[in-house]
Amino acid sequence: MAKPPKKEPALDWLEAELADTLDEDYELEMSEPALSMELRRLYREAHPPTLERKDYFEQLIRLQSELIKLQDWVQHTGEKIVVIFEGRDSAGKGGVIKRITQRLNPRIVRTVALPAPSDREKTQWYFQRYVPHLPAAGEIVLFDRSWYNRSGVERVMGFASEDEVEQFFNDVPEFERMLVRSGIRLVKYWFSITDAEQQLRFLMRIHDPMKQWKLSPMDLQSRVRWEDYTKAKEDTFARTNIPEAPWYIVPGNDKKRARLNCIDHLLSMVPYEPVEHEEVNLPDRVHNEEYERAVLPPELYVPSKY
């Protein structure tokens, strides 16, 4: 009987990565309590068939390998990249950011998700608290919400006056042009979901104790003020979609496709190239015959319960 063809090392690596990622996904699914039958029915009706699990992970890992090349190129060339993720609550911003950063170096690629401004920050120039988080050479910064809080939640919830919002709209195009002139590549994404999809995602979070922390009083108010947020979004696009930093809308009802489409588009926005690396060789360990390893007391060890 003929022996099966020997697998290429690259295929072995891909299968191992797929298995590891699938295990993680199964772990997440097992941790979620069973949803009510009514929620399951609503979910099935609202979502047409999406990508097969294996196909999704194969594409995700391929894109993540390209993100590593992008990271190497940014570090090598000293480029500076800012990516803004905006959109309604539960639109999928955090999910795509997680997949982008999952395999990257946190010293090069970092996420900024600022809390509500302090009393002191409220007295500062509006953009001041964002400026310290901008990238230096060889860095990529992902903003999970950004200065566009002013034209979104702050405007809708009444935390900013109409004069402050108008000042923001007047200032932000020039602020972003300044960033681009300084050498920063600025990419802005808006994750878009339907009214029904947001309602369903909120219901799933309410019924899942492991996701309830994602729901804040502000998130719940966003359901009441859906139309106000829609108007705020339309004004934001009309006033801040500039040639130097245009908006890109990511349809987000299908989470898997949204993640893949966004990462693929981000990669297309940067002219990165492969960077040559020196060959890495593991040095031999130095053995000292006179060294004797000390025996540590058992109470220092984590109990082996599993």
Rank of each mutant, 00 (worst) to 15 (best):
A136D: 08
A137T: 04
A137Q: 15
A137K: 15
G138E: 07
G138R: 05
G138L: 06
E139T: 07
E139F: 13
I140M: 14
L142Y: 15
F143S: 03
R145V: 00
R145T: 00
S146G: 00
W147A: 01
W147M: 01
W147V: 00
W147F: 04
Y148R: 14
Y148E: 02
N149A: 10
N149G: 15
S151P: 07
G152R: 10
G152L: 04
V153M: 02
E154R: 05
E154I: 02
M157Y: 02
G158W: 02
F159N: 06
F159E: 05
A160G: 12
S161H: 01
S161Y: 14
S161C: 09
S161Q: 06
S161K: 08
D163T: 14
D163H: 13
V165M: 05
Q167N: 13
F168H: 12
F168R: 11
F169E: 15
F169K: 14
F169Q: 10
N170R: 10
D171I: 00
P173Q: 06
P173W: 03
E174M: 02
F175H: 09
F175P: 00
R177C: 04
M178A: 07
M178R: 02
L179S: 04
L179K: 06
V180N: 01
R181V: 05
R181C: 03
S182F: 15
G183S: 04
G183M: 08
R185Q: 09
L186F: 09
L186M: 12
V187H: 12
K188C: 08
Y189D: 02
Y189G: 00
Y189M: 11
W190N: 01
S192V: 12
I193N: 01
I193T: 02
I193S: 03
T194A: 13
D195F: 11
A196T: 09
A196Y: 01
E197G: 10
Q198S: 06
Q198A: 11
Q198Y: 07
Q199L: 12
L200F: 07
R201F: 09
R201W: 08
R201Y: 09
F202G: 02
M204Y: 14
R205C: 01
R205I: 09
R205N: 03
D208H: 03
M210S: 14
M210A: 08
M210R: 12
K211A: 05
K211S: 15
Q212V: 11
W213L: 08
W213M: 01
W213S: 12
K214W: 13
K214Y: 08
S216H: 03
P217E: 15
P217V: 05
D219C: 05
L220N: 01
Q221V: 07
Q221E: 09
S222T: 11
R223V: 14
R223P: 01
R223E: 03
V224T: 13
R225E: 08
E227V: 12
D228R: 07
Y229K: 05
Y229D: 11
Y229E: 11
T230W: 03
T230K: 04
K231I: 02
A232I: 09
A232P: 05
K233P: 13
E234Y: 13
D235K: 10
T236F: 07
T236S: 12
T236A: 09
T236N: 06
T236D: 15
F237W: 02
F237M: 04
A238D: 11
R239W: 02
T240C: 10
N241W: 01
I242K: 00
E244R: 00
E244L: 02
P246A: 13
W247S: 11
I249L: 00
V250T: 11
V250W: 04
